[in-house]
């Protein structure tokens, strides 16, 4: 695959929830190593956009290609593609009946068919990296929200994904735990991971994003580098949105 080709391409994507047109002709491409932060008011379709990339939300029309291949229909090929796209959810979604370590090794062992000892070693290294190696044998419910979300990031990274999707990863966290999760995400971004991040953390968007994408009412309204977007937004919708969130 040519290095210059974008990793994720959405072309004229449309999606309806019943009568609600949640994605309207959305086109977006994400380069390898690029960090794209998607912001916008709630209900603007940004989560749906993020979830459409690994087909957790099927779309009604348009095309999505990942690494040069169109998203396959439900089945083994789709499972294989998903294993290459890490996903981090707002509500963590750690497997409640498995320990933190088992959460991280499940995918490598069952999907990648790695030897348990190999998977375990890498899982411990990842848990160490996100700062919760000492919690490896606990169950998710025994951890704080911030620790759970860091474990969820380790679980996604254990698959050695080509890209990571973050669907409002800090929205369910207590304020004092937001920083520890954003730190992990920032270090990932620095290392060159391709990331699509749906978030309300404007600080993260400013310092870690290569590009900010602003969505409203199912449309991709504006995209620009963070300095440009936050400094001089072009659309009225973006100006309005920013004036509401940046004044306090």
């Amino acid at each position: 695959m040519a290095a210059g080709q974008p990793l994720i391409v959405l072309d004229a994507v449309n999606k309806w929830f019943g009568p609600l047109h949640v994605l309207q002709d959305v086109s977006l491409s994400v380069d390898r190593g690029e960090v794209v932060v998607v912001i916008g008011p709630s209900g603007s379709g940004k989560s749906t956009l993020c979830r459409a990339i690994n087909r957790l939300e099927p779309i009604n029309s348009g095309t999505i290609t990942f690494d040069g291949n169109p998203l396959p229909a439900e089945g083994r090929a789709l499972a294989r593609l998903r294993s290459d796209v890490g996903m981090v959810f707002q509500s963590f979604n750690l497997f409640a009946h498995k320990t933190i370590l088992q959460n991280v090794t499940l995918g490598p062992i069952k999907v990648r068919k790695e030897r348990p000892s190999v998977a375990r070693d890498r899982a411990m290294a990842l848990l160490d990296r996100v700062g919760i190696a000492s919690q490896a044998d606990k169950y998710p419910a025994q951890l704080s929200g911030g620790q759970q979300q860091r474990a969820a990031i380790a679980r996604a990274l254990a698959m050695q994904p080509k890209a990571m999707l973050f669907d409002e990863p800090t929205s369910a966290l207590d304020p004092e735990m937001v920083g520890e999760v954003l730190d992990v995400m920032t270090s990932l971004a620095r290392e060159g991971m391709t990331m699509v991040v749906v978030t309300h953390e404007m600080g993260f968007a400013r310092h870690a994003a290569n590009r900010v994408v602003f969505m409203a009412d199912g449309q991709l309204v504006e995209q620009a580098p963070p300095d440009e977007f936050f400094g001089s937004p072009k659309s009225e919708r973006a100006k309005d949105f920013l004036s509401k969130i940046l004044t306090h």
């Binding site: 957790l56 998903r82 959810f89 497997f95 499940l106 995918g107 069952k110 698959m159």
Partner: peptide, 25 residues
């Protein structure tokens, strides 16, 4: 529902999802 979603997101197939994540719970 998030449990099954997370399982799909790491690439487990429908059967693996049931066997390792959904049915035990």
């Amino acid at each position: 529902a998030g449990q099954a979603e997370a399982a799909r997101a790491i690439g487990l197939t429908f059967t693996q999802n049931l066997r390792f994540v959904v049915l035990p719970q």
